[in-house]
């Protein structure tokens, strides 16, 4: 009975948290128009979340592309179908790996930075100070960070896909000797504009989810050193799980 009660309570807590996150999203969205009147704040956040993530995104993308090229070549060579390597790599990256890996890397690189920054503001009473000065911290601090992150992720995903395809091209065509013409023409034959649309819509959803979780955890963290650390950890864990679940659901809808 006690076990049942405990389970029930944890379910209730999860549901309450989901509701709180959605309400928080509503609060942010209500402040977004105001945030857009100060584009400089947003562009600074795009710099923090996007530009500073470029190195990790591009390096990972190149190696992910190379390893898919290598694995794909090895598998396809057993079927004597090396020519469709380009199509396989492009579809894998555009529809699946690009959006997901970018979102996970974004959570690790930028999500943690967002959560700990806002969390530290909370812990050192800077958010309270803003409120005392009659400045809405959601408008001044949270909304620009959320918007900057949500804009950055789709752009980072596009960069990831492009670099990944170049990585696979490098391995497949230069090292493994797949015909370069076949690599590109098979890719153009099999990749439809709808596939790119699927990848882009995924990356938009992931960008919103990852940024929202980061700012929520930071804004609502316990105002202690430990609380900031926990908020950072929870950001990565929650974002990873949510992104993977959303990924399955979007795929099931769009496929």
């Amino acid at each position: 009975m006690a076990l049942f009660r405990q389970l029930w309570n944890s379910q209730l807590a999860a549901l309450r948290k989901l509701g709180a996150v959605v309400l928080f999203l509503g609060e942010i969205l209500a402040q977004c128009p105001a945030a857009f009147t100060r584009p400089r704040l947003i562009s600074a956040q795009i710099h923090n979340a996007g530009v500073l993530s470029l190195v990790i995104i591009m390096t990972s993308a190149f190696f992910v592309g190379m390893v898919i090229g290598l694995q794909g070549y090895d598998s396809l060579a057993r079927l004597r179908q090396e020519d469709i390597l380009g199509a396989g790599v492009a579809l894998t990256l555009i529809k699946e790996l690009g959006p997901v890996v970018t979102a996970l890397l974004f959570a690790g690189r930028a999500g943690t930075a967002l959560a700990s920054e806002i969390g530290l503001m909370r812990a050192t009473d800077q958010l309270a100070a803003l409120e005392v000065m009659a400045i809405d911290p959601i408008r001044r601090i949270v909304a620009p960070r959320f918007v900057g992150g949500a804009i950055s992720v789709p752009l980072l995903t596009a960069v990831f896909n492009a670099i990944g395809i170049l990585g696979a091209w490098f391995i497949g065509v230069y090292i493994m000797g797949v015909d370069g013409g076949a690599f590109w023409s098979q890719m153009q034959e099999y990749v439809d504009p709808e596939d790119i649309g699927e990848g882009v819509s995924k990356s938009i959803v992931f960008g919103i989810a990852a940024s929202l979780i980061a700012v929520y955890e930071g804004y609502n963290c316990a105002p202690t050193a430990e609380g900031v650390g926990m908020a950072t950890t929870r950001t990565v864990v929650t974002t990873s799980i949510v992104v993977l679940i959303l990924d399955y659901m979007i795929t099931a809808f769009l496929i």
């Binding site: 980072l156 596009a158 492009a162 395809i165």
Partner: peptide, 15 residues
């Protein structure tokens, strides 16, 4: 760069 990458995807990977 992001939009250039998107353009690359839209023009190079599909017909």
């Amino acid at each position: 760069l992001g939009f250039a990458a998107l353009l690359f995807l839209a023009t190079q990977t599909t017909d």
